[in-house]
Design a protein around this nucleic acid. Structure first.
Length: 389
DNA sequence: AAGCTATTCAACCGCCCCATC
DNA sequence: AGATGGGGCGGTTGAATAGCT
């Protein structure tokens, strides 16, 4: 059976695109839209595979692509979303307007991954590489709950990405308003994001739907999802199961390091803190260091915890904050704890500052709180000109 | 200046998902 | 329900470039 190759490889050109080829492709799409990618090369007079044309267009020629250096915000977004989603570059790209998944993937592999690795953080798990297995059962449950929440968030973002894709399909021929009707969508998210009618971000609708799951007035369910997490956060070990969950403690739960402060969130927060100019972390000299030095002033989520929580509360509906965020906030007594304090605990990446302290568990919870709020804030504050809205 | 190594990133490849027939 | 085709995604490659000796 086997499927036929997407195109006849014989006689087709491969490798770098020439300006002439770019021009042909651009001119054709501007006039006709891409239509069927498979048929496009012949119509456009290109000796290329349709797939190659699509890639060239989506990753390079598209007019709505922003090229050049990634901003600190973008870097932070990538890191945080990667912590949630893993290598789901397309989903991550939906939160980075004008950046392609390919570009994000490349940037991660060439810059961010190395940067994390140098700091002793596993870029895959976003945890310190020296993590030891959790011995405290309650903490392990708590870690699993966070993992569970990450799953939900991941699923939500994936759903968003799917919506974006569907939306793009609906307005597939965004580029040429003069061409066939299918190319005349004025609200094309890619071509004219500014023309998208104002209104609540679509992700909030998804959040509502999601909240429907989270806020079902079912005590049992609450006990096994949000409530279970909250219970765990406060030290009550409640089993947490979800029909959609395929994760297990041993494989996926964030783990407390042997010195007691190094779960995934801690790792991330330390990373951010260390990167700020006010911390004396002895960071490696690297490209972009100057940018990172300014992070305290430039990044919204480096502000105090309360600010982040308020942002979340004000923007998401009450069910959202009541169930998801509150359970994150319910545990610890809350004072503001700057990211830089975290970095102070982890100079040189060994995270030894508060080791052995009786507050290790508190620090752990605190870090998780910061971490998840920062992610919520990040997701919540997706730029309004994002193609997905 | 030349040679070597490291880094970057555009492009390719193979697989998967989904819509259509 | 299963086959097929189109498109998308993530992993990987390799040419170009930068940096170092």
């Amino acid at each position: 059976m086997g499927r036929s190759p997407c195109c006849d490889k014989v006689g087709l050109k491969k490798g770098p695109w020439t300006p002439e080829e770019d021009q042909k492709l651009l001119a054709y799409i501007e006039e006709h839209g891409h239509g069927s990618w498979r048929a496009l090369p012949a119509k456009a007079g290109l000796q290329r595979c349709g797939k190659s044309c699509r890639l060239r267009w989506t990753n390079y020629l598209r007019p709505d692509i922003k090229r050049g250096k990634f901003s600190i915000q973008e870097e932070q977004t990538i890191i945080q979303l990667h912590a949630l989603l893993g290598n789901r570059w397309s989903a991550i790209a939906t939160h980075l307007p004008k950046r392609t998944d390919n570009e994000i993937k490349n940037y991660w592999n060439t810059h961010l991954k190395k940067r994390l690795a140098k700091m002793g953080i596993d870029p895959v798990t976003h945890k310190p590489k020296t993590d030891a297995i959790l011995s405290n059962d309650g903490q392990s449950k708590h870690a699993a709950n966070l993992s569970h929440m990450a799953q939900w968030e991941s699923a939500r973002l994936e759903a968003e990405a799917r919506l974006v894709r569907q939306s793009k399909l609906r307005s597939s021929s965004f580029h040429n308003p003069l061409a066939s009707p299918e190319f005349s969508s004025p609200s094309s998210p890619l071509n004219k994001p500014a023309l998208v009618p104002p209104g609540p971000p679509r992700c909030l609708d998804i959040l509502k739907a999601w909240n429907g799951v989270w806020t079902k007035p079912n005590d049992d369910q609450a006990g096994t999802s949000a409530g279970g997490a909250a219970a765990s956060v406060t030290g009550l070990a409640g089993d947490l199961e979800s029909p959609t969950s395929t994760l297990s403690y041993s494989e996926n739960a964030p783990q407390m390091s042997s010195n007691g402060i190094g779960d995934s969130s801690t790792a991330y927060i330390e990373f951010v803190g260390n990167s700020s100019g006010s911390c004396e972390g002895g960071m490696m000299k690297e490209e972009g260091e100057e940018d990172w030095k300014g992070i305290d002033n430039s990044m919204s989520f480096t502000s105090g915890l309360q600010d982040m929580a308020i942002t979340v509360d004000n923007t998401h509906n009450s069910a959202w904050t009541g169930e998801f965020t509150d359970l994150l906030l319910s545990s610890s007594g809350g004072g503001d704890r700057s990211f830089c304090e975290g970095c102070g605990e982890s100079d040189n990446g060994d995270a030894s500052g508060s080791a052995g302290s009786g507050d290790a568990s508190h620090d752990y919870l605190e870090d998780n709180k910061n971490y998840w709020n920062s992610i919520l804030n990040l997701v919540d504050s997706s730029p309004s000109d994002s193609p997905m809205f």
